[in-house]
Simulated scan of single mutants.
Amino acid sequence: MGGPARFITFEGIDGSGKSTQARRLAEHLRAGGHDVILTREPGGSPGAEEIRRLVLEGEPDRWSAETEILLFTAARRDHLEKTIRPALEAGKVVICDRFADSTRVYQGITRGDLRRTVDKLHALMIGREPDLTFVLDMAPDTGLARAKGRNGTEERFEDFGVAMQARMRAGFLDLAIEFADRCRVVDADRSEDAIAAEIAALIDGVLA
């Protein structure tokens, strides 16, 4: 993997437990003496959090996939400038709940053939991949039920239904093959503790 991973991301369909496992990993690494920044996308900086509200709330057809790509990339750029890059330059471990892989899947694959557009914008405005990505894999109907059970306001993408969740799952698994050098697929249809233990064992081999 070319040296110690410092920028770690969690990816997967809605409801697969990314936020929980990102938090568990941050706690594990802090207990081991690492200086950790736990963040998320869209969001992670004041400007990006404002954009988050625009893209995650409202009706499913509020934005076209093309507009979403621009909004997510704008949020990611601010996040990179204000949070991720400064933390990495300070030698910290950055753990992020979602990053560019989510845009590749959500807008680039499941909502139109826009992957090339996503990658061009990413190369132009972001130019950074994670060192290590955990893809949490779960059955689409299980993930959607969990996501809808949160009863929050950020359910715009969940409202597209289980068919889209199935396409997203396939998209994430394809990305895990495409970026096999940094992606690790983890079975997320298990207990929280079992998943966290597997991720901790994997990361300890990288950040030892």
Rank of each mutant, 00 (worst) to 15 (best):
N151V: 06
R76K: 14
L70N: 07
A87V: 07
D35P: 05
F134S: 07
R115S: 03
G91L: 12
G33F: 06
R76N: 09
F157A: 01
L29S: 10
L202D: 14
F7S: 08
A197V: 01
R116T: 13
L121H: 04
D159P: 00
R52P: 13
E192C: 11
A170F: 00
E81K: 03
L132F: 04
E81M: 06
R156Q: 05
D101Q: 02
R52Q: 12
V93Q: 06
A200N: 02
R156E: 11
A26F: 06
D181W: 07
G127Y: 08
G58P: 12
P46D: 03
F7W: 05
E154A: 15
R111W: 11
R23E: 15
F99I: 01
D141L: 01
T153K: 15
I69C: 10
L70V: 15
H79L: 07
E154L: 12
R98I: 06
G171W: 00
T110F: 01
R53C: 00
A26T: 02
A90N: 14
A201D: 12
M138S: 05
D14K: 07
H28G: 00
T117D: 14
L175D: 01
F160T: 13
T83K: 06
G17R: 09
A87H: 13
H122D: 13
A139S: 05
